[in-house]
């Protein structure tokens, strides 16, 4: 696809970048993080939004369709939620999560689903390259980080996953409904016990301000790749209220054990 058609949804004919809202939620509760993503997904009036967030306390998130019993770590994790996006479980510790919420007709999400992963992962790979990480799409054949029966996202690879050192380095999943898309992405900044033997940024980033350092690079890369400019904002009062209301479900026993 040509660059001009990628940008064909631009509202103006000018070459100036479109503005996306950036919402940062550092050390936010798991319920708030999940509730706000759902609120943005279900609000057709919400502006194009990128969220960057971390979790407090450390949380294990299950994929929407995963069976509780298929994720052994769920039994011992102190805090668990179930996401509305698919894929495997992620331990949100030493980790940066991002979410992108846009209409499905947006150039980033148009066409077959795998293409949207390629577009987003191209930005991610560019961000990683700032730190000397030689990341690329995994391609066919599996990765050294693949493990059976852990149910963990980073232990199950697909050809579109971002990898370096033949290990998976980014998790990703989507929910599509009502003509809108929620894309979840996850980068491990350091190794954690539940996700051994995967690719992390530990050896590439300075020990101080690791989240902020990588987040800044990711913003630069996305601005360049998506031809957008981010404007930091807080979620509106209505969005915060919706996030709190919707968020309660994510850690409820009924939702966690629905499978």
């Amino acid at each position: 696809m040509s660059r001009s058609s990628v940008l064909s949804s631009a509202r103006s004919d000018s070459a100036s970048p479109r503005t996306w809202r950036l919402i940062e939620s550092w050390d936010a509760s798991p319920e708030f993080n999940m509730g706000l993503d759902e609120a943005l997904l279900d609000d057709p009036g919400a502006p194009p939004t990128l969220r960057l967030y971390t979790w407090s306390p450390d949380t294990l998130s299950l994929g929407y369709f995963q069976k509780w019993a298929d994720v052994p770590a769920a039994a011992s994790a102190a805090t668990v939620v179930r996401r509305i996006t698919g894929g495997g479980a992620i331990h949100h510790q030493a980790e940066l999560t991002f979410s992108i919420v846009l209409p499905q007709t947006h150039a980033l999400f148009r066409d077959p689903v795998p293409l949207s992963y390629e577009r987003i992962h191209a930005a991610l790979i560019a961000a990683l390259s700032e730190f000397g990480v030689k990341a690329a799409l995994a391609g066919p054949g599996g990765l050294r980080s693949d493990r059976e029966q852990t149910g963990m996202c980073f232990h199950a690879s697909t050809p579109l996953d971002v990898a370096w050192g033949t290990r998976k380095g980014a998790g990703s999943a989507q929910r599509r409904r009502g003509g809108r898309v929620l894309h979840h992405g996850s980068i491990k900044l350091g190794s954690t016990p539940l996700e051994g033997e995967i690719a992390t940024l530990e050896e590439f980033l300075p020990a101080e301000n690791v989240v902020q350092t990588f987040a800044a690079a990711l913003l630069r890369a996305m601005e360049a790749s998506f031809a957008v400019r981010f404007e930091r904002q807080e979620p509106s009062a209505a969005e915060q209220s919706a996030a709190r209301r919707l968020g309660e479900r994510y850690s409820s026993a009924a939702f966690l054990h629905r499978r």
Binding site: F65, G86, A173, Q174, R177
Partner: peptide
């Protein structure tokens, strides 16, 4: 109204 969901390898859809 939503009546179900499907999960493909890379997306859950209502």
């Amino acid at each position: 109204a939503r009546f179900g969901t499907i999960e493909a390898v890379k997306a859950v859809c209502d």
